[in-house]
Design a protein around this nucleic acid. Structure first.
Lengths: 255, 255
DNA sequence: ATCAAATAATAATATTTGTTAATCACGAAG
DNA sequence: CTTCGTGATTAACAAATATTATTATTTGAT
């Protein structure tokens, strides 16, 4: 929690201001939101709870009746194989709502868990439904956010499917940088990232040992330093170059 | 085209019957559709055109004003890297509508192309919009189909992220079998598949040579024979076992 | 402050997969 | 019927990455 408040300070947002609500910040990028809409969105985080790291928020097989809104920290979707290996299929960052639609589903076929400690709020499906019917601009923004999420998953298929180890890791670091920056949790210099190398391995489809090798290489190249729950970007252009990073998939253009 | 009509015969569906319209067949799985709804859906395929293989239907960078409905054949979404390698991120099979939502987007950041020759129809965004507002059951089915598509993309992340070569290929073959069976284009014994080994490689993140090795191994194991634009399944249980295939991600349960 | 546990770092080795190249099979075009 | 081009097949070799093991370092708990 010390870390969390420290972060708030470093991004220069005074507690209490609307912009500190990451979901408002995120959705406003898709089009203007009326003050009332901003207030309602901010209100979703009202009953937020602090959750420690490595805890399931939703478990495979459950039938969730509410979505999860992340306000601070990093969470993820993941699944285990019978062999024990874990694959992370998405990160949930501040402002991310997981999931707009899975309330239609029966049993969940993957789990959602915190990685580092998080501040999260539960949003009952009725609340979400009421919100979207009452505020078309919000509904539209959520739809676009979901599109971005889909694009992101496709980008991940690209990443694990046809990039080398160093490219994969670099791409992931670029994506996290861009997404965190959009909600005020990263600067050009870097961002806090409470992941282990094993988490990065489970995300990129590499072994933890090889992730370590890649991170060392990136450090020696003076591109980025990852460690101590922190990502320090030394040369963003180089990092993006290695990753062939094109940020456009994160922000669907408005038609 | 000879192949296409032959196939129609082999699945035992008389031309002209409603069930021959794969989108009706697919969406009906998500809940009952009134005859009128079925007719309207079937009507979407009215102006369908035959398109030869390896042709772009939508190109990266374009701003599509209509969705693409596949009636016969296999198409895909893909993207190229600067290095020239291609990653296929989704298959579009008969009954698949690509894409319900990308009409919201500006420029497309991936391409859609036929693999084998296809019969496809264009569905203008207004038609699609009218359909969903007028027929809630159709809108709901399309939403569930989209959910299945998202689950599928996540499953692909799993596949390339944490499965071995033989597991990846097997899983892909299982998925195609299941999806094609749902629309009447596969039997327990197998299905037609107009892909090259390079296409399979671009899907699974392997080299074409290694795909060949894996297919040989599966053949020698008497599990499945892939060749001549055809997949013959010799031992479905074994194939699914190798792939750890769980079909549930393809059919979101109704809440 | 100390200890225990988790994470990170590194090396040595094994395995998987990619690359290159050569040959083979087959269908399409003339 | 022949030719040509594409895709399939195979082998030999190279590269990338995994595995195992050991030691350091950090973190968290008492």
């Amino acid at each position: 929690m010390t870390t969390l408040t420290t972060n708030l300070a470093t991004v220069g947002i005074s507690p209490g201001g609307h912009l500190m609500h990451p979901i408002v910040r995120k959705l406003a990028a898709y089009g203007p939101l009326a003050p009332e809409e901003q207030a309602v969105l901010a209100g979703l985080g009202a009953g937020a709870q602090l959750v420690e790291g490595r805890l399931d928020l939703l478990s495979e097989g459950c039938v969730p009746d509410s979505a999860v809104l992340v306000l601070e920290g990093v969470a993820c979707r993941y699944r285990h194989r019978r062999t024990g290996t874990r694959q992370i299929t998405a990160y949930l960052l501040p402002g991310d709502l997981c999931d707009l639609d899975f309330v239609h589903l029966g049993r969940l076929n993957h789990s959602v868990a915190t990685l580092g400690s998080c501040r999260v709020a539960r949003v009952p499906r009725e609340v979400l439904a009421g919100l979207t019917t009452q505020y078309p601009a919000v509904a539209r923004a959520l739809r676009l956010a979901k599109l971005a999420e889909e694009e992101t998953t496709r980008e991940w298929v690209m990443n694990v499917g046809c990039r080398s180890a160093i490219e994969r890791v670099s791409h992931l670091l670029c994506e996290l940088h861009e997404r965190l920056r959009a909600v005020g949790w990263a600067t050009k210099a870097g961002y806090d990232l409470p992941l282990t190398q094993q988490d990065l391995a489970d995300t990129t489809g590499l072994s933890n040992v090889h992730v370590n090798r890649v991170l060392r290489q990136l450090r020696l190249m003076r591109v980025v330093e990852v460690g101590g729950k922190r990502v320090d970007i030394l040369n963003l252009a180089a990092l993006q170059e290695i990753a062939e990073f094109q940020a456009d998939y994160l922000r669907p253009a408005v038609a």
